[in-house]
Structure formats: C-alpha cells, structure tokens
Amino acid sequence: MFYIEKSCAIQHQQVLVDGQLVTHEPDLEFSEFVKKSFRSLAIDYPKFYKMDGLSKLAFLTAEYLLKGSASGNVALVLANQSGSMDSDLKHIRSIQDPDNFFPSPATFVYTLANICAGEISIRHGLKTENVFFVDQQFPTELVYTYTSYLLQSNRAQKVLCGWVEYFQDNYRAILYLVGREGTQVHSVGNIELLF
C-alpha cells in the first residue's frame, strides 16, 4: 500500500501545505506573489527568476514538498490544461513582424510543457521517470494507475504528482508526494479530495 505523504496547493494568492495556510498575499499579482513566496524559502537559486510562469509555479510548489528531503529517486507525473501556451504565445508575438524579428531564446526554451518537470529535476538532481499529460482536467485515475505502477515496479521510491496550470496569470498548482510511508492512503478518492 502507498500513501500521500505530503501535498501543496498554490492558487488564489495562497500557499497551503498539507491543507495548512503558509502564505496569503491577496493583493499581489502572480509574478510578485511567486517571487515573494520564493524569497521566503531563502533559496539561493537565481535561475528561478528566468523561468516562465509555468515553471516558476511548478518549481515553487515542488520546493515545498521536496526541500530538505533526500529526493534522489522521485518520479514526476504532472498534468495541466494549457500546456505551455503562455510561453508559446509570447514566442509567436516575437516572430510575427518580419521587420522586427527577434525571437527570445530565453522564451523559446519554455515552449514545451514538460520543461517545468525538467526545472524540478535539475533543482533536486532527479534522473527519474517523468511524464506530463495535457487534458481538460486532472486525469485522476490515469495518474493514480501510473503512479502505482512506478512504485510497485520499484522504478521510483516516491512519485511527485499533480496539476500545474498557468495561462496569462491564471494559475493553479496542486502537487502531492506519494510514497511508502504515511497515514493518508494513496487512492483515487483521496486524490480527489486534494482538488
């Protein structure tokens, strides 16, 4: 049997870890909100400021779950609705005018949704299985089944799962860490309670 060991939700200018309110900044837009939340974690990681919105959101949410833990063999199973559309549109805008054609390499590298999984992996030194689904809503049963398989087959010691959606400053991240210890059983019903 596996367990949901920890969870973190970032939405509505709030950070909740295991359902407990950590931060609430009702007056801050996304960029300022994530910057302030990131600084509160006292991490020396300048690359954070160069990430796109989706990666900042995923990185920050994962940080609350993985910081300080021996994260080595943690697989990633993530999903969202908009993929990397926010960065895709920024990139498209930069190449529409033939007379002012200056695509930004720093924007272009984020025009794939699973780059945010890469940012988490780099930060925590993960060389593990990862997958990123794009769907209208969180594919609970699919993620549950795949996560269970990864753990049962010992392809991962733990799995960081969840939803990380960002598009034009609308955002919602709900990530949870599934492992072999804990009290909250890893089940479709308990996953749905997180959402």
Partner: peptide, 8 residues
C-alpha cells in the same frame, strides 16, 4: 541561453 540573448 544568456549568451544567445546577448547575441539577440
């Protein structure tokens, strides 16, 4: 990536 940005 910063190097590419400087070229741009």
């Amino acid at each position: 990536i910063d190097a590419l940005e400087l070229i741009v």
